[in-house]
Design a protein around this nucleic acid. Sequence first.
DNA 1: GTAGTAACTGCAACATTGTAGCATTAAATG
DNA 2: CATTTAATGCTACAATGTTGCAGTTACTAC
Lengths: 145, 145
Amino acid sequence: MARELITRHGGRVTRTRIAVIETLLASDQPLSHDELGSMLAEIDIPHDRVTLYRALDWLVEHGIARRIAGGDRAWRFEAARADGHRHAHFHCDHCGQVICLEHLEPSFSTVLPDGYRVDRAELILHGACASCSPQRSANEPCCPH
Amino acid sequence: MARELITRHGGRVTRTRIAVIETLLASDQPLSHDELGSMLAEIDIPHDRVTLYRALDWLVEHGIARRIAGGDRAWRFEAARADGHRHAHFHCDHCGQVICLEHLEPSFSTVLPDGYRVDRAELILHGACASCSPQRSANEPCCPH
DNA sequence: GTAGTAACTGCAACATTGTAGCATTAAATG
DNA sequence: CATTTAATGCTACAATGTTGCAGTTACTAC
Ligand SMILES: [Mn+2]
Ligand SMILES: [Mn+2]
Ligand SMILES: [Zn+2]
Ligand SMILES: [Zn+2]
């Protein structure tokens, strides 16, 4: 699956690329470079920081992954859907976790000044996730924050 | 006006704060720290990078300014409206300029998992501004990009 | 106006996130 | 296996932002 995605786009099948694709496909939420780095380290895929940046750039360039601007200053990445499906995201301002809002399309309709061209819309809801919301009972464990 | 805004919130009236507030109020688009720094330098307000960061933090904390995540990794700031009005923004991926879409409210309605709390929504349209759109006549000046 | 005090500033050092150049390694191909 | 060149690893650098701390300044009380 991962190998085929890579060769289909004329890339070379390397350890890091395979692991990144498989990790993204297995994740139900977008992952930051840093998170991916840790996950790769855990499954014993040695790699350089820069290699990971370049692998992710390559995946985005070829439409295999999508880049999301979280609202903090770190990109997050998720596997692109074959059908081009897009959705909004929720960013927990407390622990930094980002989740996908599968059923919320970032649609818009607006009058832009003449000559402007829209390529895509990003909708991000900010708030606190369940683990970070203050109303939860005080003896349940919270996020590492 | 600026002085009053500051004292009303129990802050000390300083050169930098006044200049920042006045610059934000006079601007029709959100400004990055860097842009603000240049503008302040032009009107002869000497200041340290860090002072500007702290002035902006203070303004946001007190609801005088609002912080916007452009999509590149630099915050932008705009004067907050008295009526709490919010709107979406357009980010030119070519020259980095951000403009306000006054009439586009970043509304949303979605079912979040239990326990999640939404504080605000950010909607950013990405594309090319009029100066950067390719269809413009080739002998008009374009952005510095 | 002077003095006292806490808020604010400026500077230096550091943190995080990401890029660029370049020599080395290794995936693909025949 | 030998050749080719894409991909990697390393080092150095850039952009954006934060922290600690000593010194300055805006405000308050007199
Ligand atoms: Mn998603
Ligand atoms: Mn705006
Ligand atoms: Zn959280
Ligand atoms: Zn532009």
